[in-house]
Design a protein around this nucleic acid. Structure first.
Lengths: 260, 260
DNA sequence: CAGAGCCATTGCATTCTCTGCAACAGCCAT
DNA sequence: ATGGCTGTTGCAGAGAATGCAATGGCTCTG
């Protein structure tokens, strides 16, 4: 809608691939160097772009701050977090919280007591939408025609032999998920990883988020993981209750701490 | 430099404060609603802004993805990470990695084996620049006049009684830090938290990053924490060596995994 | 049920901003 | 020195963004 802004914003994903100099940016944008320069300058002033010592441009620091503020403003996350922690404490497995946004499903929170390595790297990342348990729940909740249209547009990569192979299979799966009110991913994305998920619903009954517990085969079998289903569903229910205002919000939110 | 882009980008921090509707955005931007609408649309198309069900706008998902890619492209981080993990394994405390960028010092990595809660929330967040050990190291490395000018412009909030109170005190501290090649933060930000930090230097000797180990008083005393100093410095040295190409980069980088 | 009021949205003419060009400056390598 | 490479700036023209006013959808109210 706005050419200038459009061009400027196209620079961001471009730089996300790696640092680039003025010429490269101008070329890939299809504009004159001077134009690219001015766009980069504006981005720079806003801190979205950083100029490193070799004069090349990189994505800047403000981007982190913005992304962080964005995630902190998601009220579902705020409410859900203590529940996720509690669930994690009682079962020990990885717990995820995800939402549906603009055709993508992405993690907005995660608690993992065992593998702290690179934990943050998953938050904000779109999930494998055709296989992830949380994705199934969120998509199953869409109105019929929309769901159908969406399923048609998807790719169905075979991450493993148990991945969802096609749109019809996916739609069948969604029907089942909607029916039973919970979902699983049994090795559909990574051979050795299973998940159980339950939806979090707002006051109007629509799924606003979904949560899941994931564990590798080597720790618990599929059957053992399914044992946790009632607990997961209860947790999701508790969050739903609080989110939709039915429950008086047990205690106040968390605080923060810090260090250097 | 570019009015349109400038306006569009001003929307982002505005929305970071919380969701807003078209009218509010237009007002705070000082432009006509139709203009604001078109800007928001453009941002929307790029996924930087999300329109929630009540028609109000929020920061969008793409922001996460971008911030994530940005952080993954920071090569210091890539190289440092395994070292940080190893250090964390051997001492058990929180380990941070930070860089200096555009007048801010921010964490770009963190390993924390004990408190998985909200781990990610610290990454990308600007540190308390007047007290954090990593900030002292990075600023101590600036050329004299620049350092001086920068120190003058800072605020010196008294987080605790031991916070750096003023620019002169800060500059003295930086001199000391530069002298000794390492830094501490002893309760300067949070009464009960101490840190020890060491710089990571590139081939030209300039500090490209700094790392620290932090622990609360209740776990280890100041003196005990200082015991770790040699280990921290050795780790920083190892990372420096690898980053500047002196060391043959032990093994290859990491991979990724996933779940749902 | 009608009507008022609010908000988002659109078409259009005007105007102002952005664009691309060309010239300039700094840097490195030849 | 000199040529080529990069980033940078001034300028005039052109195209794009702007604000206005009018429309359409919605909810709240009488």
């Amino acid at each position: 809608m706005s050419q200038t802004v459009d061009r400027a914003l196209n620079i961001l994903p471009l730089l996300a691939e790696g640092p680039a100099d003025l010429g490269q940016v101008a070329d890939r944008l299809g504009v004159h160097k001077s134009t690219a320069l001015r766009l980069l300058r504006t981005l720079h002033e806003h801190g979205l772009v950083y100029r490193q010592s070799d004069q090349r441009y990189r994505l800047g620091a403000r981007l982190f701050a913005l992304a962080q503020e964005a995630v902190e403003n998601l009220d579902v996350r705020e409410i859900a977090h203590p529940h996720l922690v509690r669930l994690n404490e009682s079962c020990g497995h990885t717990v995820h919280l995800a939402v549906h946004e603009e055709g993508e499903v992405l993690y907005i929170d995660k608690v993992d007591s065992r593998y702290p390595v690179r934990m943050y790297s998953r938050i904000g990342k779109p999930v494998a939408i055709t296989v992830a348990a949380v994705a199934k729940l969120l998509l199953a909740d869409l109105p019929d025609p929309e769901r159908r249209a969406f399923a048609e547009k998807l790719d169905y990569p075979m991450y493993t032999a148990r991945s969802t192979p096609s749109a019809p299979a996916f739609l069948r799966e969604l029907d089942k998920v909607r029916e039973q009110g919970w979902a699983t991913d049994l090795g559909g994305h990574e051979e050795s990883i299973n998940c159980v998920a339950a939806p979090i619903r707002g006051a109007d009954g629509r799924a606003v988020a979904a949560m899941s517990v994931s564990a590798p085969n080597v720790v618990v079998t599929e059957d053992e993981l399914l044992t946790l289903l009632p607990l997961v569903r209860r947790t999701a229910e508790a969050i739903s209750g609080e989110y939709s205002g039915r429950t008086p919000t047990t205690q106040s939110g968390s605080s923060s701490s810090s260090s250097s």
